[in-house]
Each structure stands twice: as C-alpha cells, then as structure tokens.
Design a protein around this nucleic acid. Structure first.
Lengths: 216, 216
DNA sequence: GTGGGCCTCCATCAATGGGTGGAGACTGGC
DNA sequence: GCCAGTCTCCACCCATTGATGGAGGCCCAC
C-alpha cells in the first residue's frame, strides 16, 4: 500500500506543453495531477475546486498573470504551495513571484528528475531556488526600486515616445519627464533611453507583449 | 494490421517540454518518436542517424539555431520535412524558417489535435501555416530588407551603443553611421533609435538573448 | 513637527541624435 | 558599358536628450 499521492495542479497556457507535463507527472509514483488551467482566471476557479497540494505555474498567462494568481490564492489559502515553472528568467519576474509567495522558481530547461524532486521538497515544506536563479535575484537586490512615476515614464520610453509625448501622455511638464528619466537611468545603471528600453525588456520590467501595436 | 508509423524526431532544448511532447506523441496511433535532440548540433547527428520522416523543431536552440539546422539538413536530404514548433512569433523568425524550408510553423499554444493533424498533413506532402502566422508573414513582406551593414548598426543600437561607439566598433565614420541609421529607421518604419531597438527585439531581428551582458 | 521620499517644476548647457542633400567607389547583373 | 544598390564619407542645421543644481508641495512615519 502506497502513501497518499501529492495532488498537483498544472497551470500553463500552451496546450501541448501542459498536456505533456501532465502526461509526464501522471506516470510518476506518488504524484497525481488533479487539475489543469490554461489561464489565470481558470487557475483560480480550478484551485478553489480542487485544493491541490502543489501548483505548478507558468507566469505569463492570458487574462491574469501568474504573480497575481499566486498572490490572490495565498490570501485565501495561506498554506497553498506554488512552484513557478517558466521559460523566462527576467529578474523582475523572479523577484515578484517569490515576493508573492512562490516556494520555488524553475526554468523549463531543468530535468524531469529535478522537477519531481522539487515538487516533493516543496510539498515537504522546503523551498528551492536553483543557483542560477538565486544569482539573478541577488543582482536585482542591489538595485533600487523605481518609483511608480518613474515606471510610467519607463513604460513610455519602451514604447518609443519622445519626452514631449510622454509629458502630454502623463500630463506633466517636459522638465518633470526629464527629472524622472534622469533618476531612472541612474537606478537602472544605464546612460540613455535606448539602453533603458532594452534593459526594461530584458529584465522583464516592461513585458515585450505590450509592444504588439495597441493603437492607444 | 496498421500502416507503417510516421517516424518523428523532436528537437527542443527544454527537457520537460521535450519529454512531454514525446510522451504525447508516442501514444498517438500511427506516430513514433524515433529520435530526440536538445540542441542544434545534436539535432544534426541524430537526424543523420535516424532519418526521421518529420522533424518537430524549436527555433531557439543552444549551439546552433533551428533555422541553420533546417537549412543544413535540407541540403543533405532535400526530402526532409520540418515543422517549426515554437513559442516565439517574431516575424523575422517565421520568415527565415519558412525560407529555410520548414513546411509548417506552429505556436506551442495550439491544441494537440492541430499538432497531430499538421504532422500528418506535412507527411502527406502538404504545408500548413496558421492564419495568425500568415498574417505576420504578409506584414513583413511589405517591408524592405535591411542591408548587412544596416543590420550591424541596428545590432549595436540594440546593445545601447552611441553613434560614436558604433563608428569605432565598425571602423567607419560617425557620418556613415548616421547614414545607415537614417536608412534603417525608414525601413523599419520608426522615427528614432529607441523605437528601432524595441522593434528589432519585438520582430526578432536581434535576439533578446544577445543582451545578456557579454562583456565584448 | 521634523525628516524623508516622491512628484512636480524651473533654467541652463553641452552632447547627442536625426534630417537633408550630395558625392565617390565598388560590386554584380543586364 | 551602364545601371542599381550598397557602402563610404562630407557639411550644415536644428531638435532632442541628458546633466546639473536648484525649489516648493505633499504625505507618511517616527
């Protein structure tokens, strides 16, 4: 007679990846996939219904991002355990996910053995952050937070707006825009707006998806 | 007695995704996964050894990119059939993959049924490009090609270099750099270097990975 | 209430960036 | 040989950007 299985939920928007993961996990002794979700909203309803022990979660999800889902569900169910499983390793994502209460952050490049070991470890109450991820985290720790306003300005820069356009958009003077830019350049450790834009994308501060020409 | 199975190779660097895909495909009647590879170089050796009917391939691979692998293998084995299966949908990737001889371009978001149907269709000699992808292709068709030199300059811009630095790096005068920039801004349909940088990243002209601070 | 952080604005200045129009050299194709 | 495209360079000009050093108002925490 075996012990009770660990009940797992898989949240991942790419169908084939999700189905593959489920197929992989279901053949593992001691694991049972009890629920699946393809977007953030579905993740919440499925979680409430099935109360999984462990939730494997991608961060980039339609409708509601993974970070928000984790935050929300941990409010309702403080004991809930989340493992982030994603391809992206922008420092910002990592930071925000762990901040929200994820217990582990894995890249999809890891082996199946690592994944299973991590699921068991997290279920046993441990946390697990791979060294490569920890390094990124440490890096981001050294840097200062952007203020909300600086973030607004950075977002506009990434979208290719000029200082004048940003001033109009945010309804402040161009002088103020320059002040914010000067400050955020320093915090990001870069010397001009183009570097700021690529750094923001690379570090996941501004999502690449937001560039897909929304007319607004 | 069933017909002969379609012999499939899976090339994908993320272990869990690859294993998931293999698990998925192996339970399908009429398909058989005969080889796997985790990077471009391995893909070539495995292909030569197993001569699969269909190769499912991610584009972003360590050591050698998917496009180059396709190109190379189609030189050796003109009848080889490739299906690109990737998460990225930068227009440039799509274009280059089809150019190299891929028969289909699928995003990982598609359903398992679509994937299987596409494998069968491509094996039967057809091509398959989903409408969403075709649209992107059409978009990119309207735009002019960058010249090699313009591409060099664009790459430097994305890496945050100033005109002076670019001039030094490429060993040309700053005036020439400006000429190239002026020209590439027009071709990309943007008005300044920051927009050029984000457009280049978004469209996959310059890979985001190249930003990971290589000291050079 | 004092201090700190943030947001707002100002002026000034130097450096950088981008627009325009032109020109010579080299290449490959017709 | 000629044309088209590319790569290279030049000069000139104006707009934009970024750096510097202020300053006042606001709110929150101590």
């Amino acid at each position: 007679m075996t012990k009770e299985s660990i009940r797992v939920m898989v949240v991942e928007d790419h169908h084939v990846v999700r189905q593959g993961l489920v197929a992989l996990l279901n053949v593992v002794e001691g694991l049972e996939v009890v629920a699946e979700a393809a977007d953030g909203v579905e993740a919440i309803t499925q979680f409430r219904k099935h109360q999984p022990d462990i939730t494997l979660m991608d961060l980039r999800l339609p409708r509601m991002g993974g970070v928000d889902v984790i935050q929300r569900l941990r409010m309702e169910t403080p004991g809930a355990r989340f493992i982030v499983l994603t391809t992206y390793d922008g420092d910002e994502d990592i930071y925000r996910a762990l901040q929200a209460g994820a217990r582990a952050y894995l890249l999809k490049g890891m082996t199946t053995e690592e994944l299973i070991a991590t699921i068991r470890a997290v279920h046993a109450g441990k946390s697990h952050i791979p060294p490569a991820i920890a390094e990124k985290l440490a890096e981001r720790m050294g840097t200062e937070e952007l203020t909300p306003r600086e973030f607004d300005v950075l977002e506009q820069i990434v979208h290719g707006k000029s200082n004048k356009e940003i001033a109009t958009e945010l309804e402040i003077s161009e002088a103020t825009v320059k002040t914010h830019i000067n400050s955020l350049l320093g915090k990001l450790g870069v010397t001009d707006r183009t570097q700021a834009a690529t750094a923001a994308i690379q570090r996941g501060i501004v999502p690449l998806e937001s560039l897909r020409k929304p007319k607004s």
